[in-house]
Structure formats: C-alpha cells, structure tokens
Design a protein around this nucleic acid. Structure first.
Lengths: 365, 365
DNA sequence: CTGAAAGCGCTTACAG
DNA sequence: CTGAAAGCGCTTACAG
C-alpha cells in the first residue's frame, strides 16, 4: 500500500518549498500571501498527480482547520431500533453538513461505556481531531459540560443543557413556550383544574415544560398541580387526579400514553372525562401508538441542522460577537391539534357517575 | 483558559525527561523498557498533580495512523425511511469500528449529486483524509472503482463489485451458494419446472443469484427458465409461467411480493399452485410485508462489520500477503423456512382447473 | 513572492 | 535504567 502523499512529496514534485504547498492550500496566511500564478499551477498539478490530501490529524495538531465536524452520540450512532428518537437529529445534522460542505466524524472509538459519558471514556481531548463537535444524547453529563467549557473547545449540544461552568451552546426545543401555549388553549376551552405530569426535573427539558406550565396557570390565576415522576401504572395517580378534580393534563411525552391507559382502565373517556396534551415526541419506541395526540412535536431535524449551523458560526471569524442569545437556541415546537383534548365535561352529574364507578373499582382491587 | 498539561510539564515537575514520561505512560517501548520504581512513582505523582492527559491528536500523528476510517454512502448516511435497507450495513460498520477503536468519517461533503457517484463529485481526493474507506450503495459505479484501484487507495465495498481495473476488495453476500441451495431444496421437494425471476444482470448480486440457479438446475438435468427484469404487474409474466408449466420460482427480493400478488390475482394459491423463494432482503421498504417468506436473508450487519475488518487488515503490517480470496468475502446468507414453499401440486386436474380459471380471467381482461 | 525554521505533543529508535 | 534527538505532517510567524 502506497504511503499517503504529504506536502513534502508535493513540494518535491513541484520544485517548491513545503511551506509554499501549505500556502496554496490554505490561503489564509498572515497577510493573505499570494503565490504567483505559475507556481500555484505547478503545485496544483503536483497535488493532482500525487493524489495528495491533507492529513487532518497533523492539521489539527499544528492548529489548523480540517472541515471535519465531530459528532458524539451518547447513544449508538446508527440506532438499532427503527424509528429511533435520535435519528431525526442526525438527519438534520447530515443535511446541514452537506449544505456547508463539511464532513462528519463519528466518534465510534469513544463509545460511551455503560452510559458514563465522555469524561469517562477518554475525555474531551479526542474530540479535537475535529474542528468542533456536536453532542447528542438523552441525559445530562455535568462533568462533560464542565470539561468542554473549561477546555474552550467549540461544541454545541442538541437539546438544552445548563452548566455552572459557563454558557453552554445548544440548539434546544422551545418546550417552555410550547407548553405555556398548550395550557393557554386548555384554559381557553374552559379547563380550570389542569395538572402537569412530568418526568424528573433533573433534566432541563422537563424543567422547561414545568416552567411553561406554571407561567400559564399562574397568569390565569389557577392552581398549579404537578406530578413529578408519577407512576402511571399505579392507581394512585388517577386517584389523585380525581381527588383534585382535574379535567385536563399536560404530560411529558413518555407519560401521555400510560396516563391515557390508566384513565381508560378507570373507565374515563378521553377526552370526554380527561383531556390530555402530549408535550413533545416520545423517546421510547414502545410509546409510538396510533393515537392522534393533541400537543406538539419536537422539531428534531431542525434542532440537528441548527446545532450544526451554530457550531459553524462559532468557528467563523468573530465568534466573540456571539451573545448568549445567539448561542442558546430555542426552536419552536410544532403544534398539533389531535383528538385527545376537548372542553371539560359539562355536567357535574356525569362527573359524579364516573367517580362512583371509579370508587367501586378501587374497592374491588 | 488553563493550557492543558503536556508531557513536558509533567517531566519538568518530576525532574525527568519527557521521554521517560512517555515511557511510563505507554510501557510498550521497543524492549518493554522498565522505568525504576522510584522514578515511576515521581512521574505518576506529577501526572496526578498536573492533571495530565495525553493528547490523542498528537498520539495519532506520532503513531503514523489517523485511526480514521472513511465511509462513503451513495445514499444518505442517515436514511429518512425507517427500516432502510442500508441501515444494518452501517450498524455493522459501527460495531466493528467501536471494537477496533477507530472513528468513522462520513463524507457528507461529497454527497453524491443525482446519483452520479464519487467521480462526479470531486473524485477520490477527499477520501484520502482517512486511512481507508468503506463504500456502500445500491448501484455499481465502474468509474469510481477504476479510480479507486488506479489510485491505490485502500477501500472495501459492501456488496460484491467487479472491475476490469483490478481486484475489488469487498464484503459481499454469498448469493450464488444460497440460491443454489434453495433451488436444490425445491428439487428435493419434487419440483421440476423451476423459474428464476431476477432484476437486471448489470448488477453483480443478480448475476450471482442467476449463476447459483443455473448451477443447481443444470446439475439436476433440468431446464433453466429465467426472466430478467420481468414486469410483475403485467399478466404476461403469469401467462409465461403457466405456459412453461412452472411450479416454483426463485425471485429477486423486490420481485417476490409482486409475483405473489400477480399469482393470487390469477387465483393461484401460494404455495399450493406456485412455490416462491425470496432470494434475500428486499431493498424497497414498500416491499416489507407480513409474509413469512421462504428463502434467505442478506447478512447485512455481518457484511458491514466484515468490510471494516477487511479494510483494517489491508491497513495492517503486511497487506501484500492478502490474496484475492482474502480480499473478496462471500458471507453466508441466512436460510429461512417460511410458508411460501411446498411440494408441487399433486394432481394434474387441479392444475387444469387452475389453468381454466386463469384463462377465463385473461379473456375477460 | 518564496523559503528556512520553529513548534504543535507525542512515539520510538538510538545512545549512553 | 534513562535521556537527547529525530520524526510524524502540518501551520505560521519571521526573514529574505
């Protein structure tokens, strides 16, 4: 196997110095150094002839750019499950990369061991073969974020992430705004007892939804009734909703279907007895059902594409000019009017009946 | 921004040479060089103190390998269609890359314009930023193959490819052997009039299937009856099968379902009147049905994984020792006994009846 | 306009 | 057992 050609090889063939070869390749020298037309021609021909392509590793070590953007996925790059949650993010990244003419380096060598993240599997250093890096994954890894920020390595997270260590650049979904709007609509329909069901507020995206919910209910002078990490398989949740007189619930994506199932088991009708709003795309494939959910979709492709563009902006000439608002993107979610929301049940009697049935079932159990 | 510590920093602190630091870190020196206990201790402490972590970029440059393997996909890297045909190949590549500790560079910048291939979008040049490259795609691109071979660039195709320009390294499916075996089984069941339905023999994989079919029928002294690129939506195909007295057909993956549909429309029963063997995984997602096809599966993940391993072998110490057999892999297909094959219809009357019905329908049309 | 030289942070013969 | 030195393939001041 022929050794790959180097600038030295090209230089020898073109009868110029290696510096000159580098110069014609990356014209961005101190003073936009011009190489005379004749010499440039010779060099270009020699490049052609030798099949030279710059070694990105050497380029990076010397402090240059490679037009290679890293992609670090906390989950598998090529997900096993068709219809995987992460797929659309990567499609967006790919599309934007193609548009920008950059290549994507998937850090398969850094496969996150047992979900312990980047820091655990070799650290941020390895990412530096790329000009910058996009990160995607379900969880938050505070150490990774701190490390990334401290090292001053250009990166963008897909999905909002916070760190005490500094301003984390991200392309996130506007969950707060979308949730708020969804709750506003429930209120406009006449609902007064609206619950929020979310997963752990450890995660930024859940905090955002909760915040949107709180803003909307408090502005309307309603009571905020939220359940964090409820167990949708227990009857207690439905008991609690009933006791609180809830007529509508906004639910984290993976909680919507279980809530619906639990409610139906109680012989509630959806949306007759309970309206449910789904706050985004479900992550777990088993949650993908045929239900026409009212709520909104997570703009996954857009998040991927915008993340890449944001990274490119950071790599551009004057990254200092980027403000926090430039670095932290909240992309609008896509509202969808489905079949799981209706005005609250009109008659108290109906509600009584339902409650009676429910109570009977509960006693039997 | 704290500059990250280097071996030089550690060396200074530990009062040893930078070489020694490198030595204690990577004990694999020429003669397993031992550093005395005391010195090793000092170095380790200094590493601790400085928080030193090796710069992988420098390691790669010094090591002579970038550990970057390119992946060029003629189709989109992250396919839009869930259940995409190409997905499993990439999963296999990813798994093998993870095992080998190499990263994958997806050439998104080279997105093949209108299916015109590599040569059309700039040529082999950019691929050279990687140590070698895996190529995946539906079609054959003779120019690309010739270019790759002529340039002596290490690559492996997923799926068998031929070129007059030389020996193309590939990890292909053993379609010939699998098809032959399938036909043998039909013969063992008592079939004597067996047809082959394949797509254009322009493609290597179709030629392989045809070859396997021909070998099997000729060995059994039967007539070879093959249809290349038949139109399964026309009644002519069924007419022809009927005229030839066919009782079983082996069909290219994307032709099996259309053939079945056409036969059912004729009121043939499957497998009663016609046995159908499907020769691999269908490419087009609309062909994915609930039918339990008899035939075999394409070992897609294995092909991806083996392609990467083969490429790595080419990049290893003594690639010259690789023979053509080493470079061209035919991975065994996975046989599957489904519900679309049975012994041929026992009675001539049954067949007459069927033919009569069919003839009537044909006249009506 | 062009080239000699230093430097990026490592590994690895080659000498002591 | 340890270190001085060369080299991996680039970029980028710094001199001509």
């Amino acid at each position: 196997m022929a050794r790959r050609a180097t600038q030295a090889d090209v230089a020898r063939l073109a009868q110029v110095s290696q510096t000159t070869v580098s110069m014609v390749l990356t014209g961005t020298g101190a003073a936009q150094r011009r190489v005379s037309g004749a010499v440039r021609e010779r060099v270009l021909r020699a490049i052609e002839e030798t099949g030279y392509a710059a070694n990105p590793v050497a380029q990076r070590l010397a402090g240059g750019r490679t037009s290679i953007i890293g992609v670090y996925t906390y989950e598998a790059v090529f997900p096993v499950v068709a219809g995987d949650f992460y797929h659309p993010f990567l499609e967006g990244v790919e599309q934007a990369a193609e548009d920008a003419g950059v290549d994507l380096l998937m850090f398969t060598s850094l496969a996150s061991k047992a979900g312990r993240g980047l820091t655990a599997s070799g650290g941020v250093g390895r990412l530096r073969v790329a000009d910058g890096c996009i990160l995607v994954g379900r969880h938050s890894y505070p150490e990774d974020l701190a490390d990334l920020l401290r090292r001053d390595f250009p990166f963008v997270f897909i999905g909002r992430r916070e760190s005490a260590a500094g301003v984390v650049p991200y392309a996130g979904a506007g969950y707060a705004a979308a949730t708020q709007e969804a709750v506003d609509q429930l209120i406009a329909l006449g609902h007064r007892r609206i619950a929020a069901l979310i997963e752990s507020t450890e995660h930024e995206s859940m905090r955002d939804r909760l915040e949107g919910y709180r803003t909307a209910v408090s502005r309307a002078g309603l009571e905020a009734i939220s359940f964090e990490d409820p167990d949708p398989n227990s009857t207690e949740l439905i008991d609690a909703l009933e006791a609180a007189g809830i007529t509508a619930a906004v639910a984290a994506p993976d909680l919507a279907a279980p809530l619906r199932r639990a409610a139906l088991e109680r012989e509630w009708s959806i949306p007759g007895d309970l309206s449910i709003v789904r706050l985004g795309d479900p992550e777990r494939p088993e949650q993908i059902d045929g239900i026409d959910w009212t709520g909104f979709l997570t703009p996954r492709r857009e998040m991927g594409a915008e993340a890449l563009r944001l990274l490119l902006r950071q790599l551009a000439d004057s990254p200092e000019s980027l403000t926090q608002d430039d670095l932290q993107l909240h992309l609008p979610c896509i509202p969808h009017q489905g079949a799981t929301v209706a005005p609250p049940g009109r008659s108290t009697p109906a509600r009584e009946t339902r409650s009676a049935t429910a109570r009977k079932k509960a006693q039997r159990a």
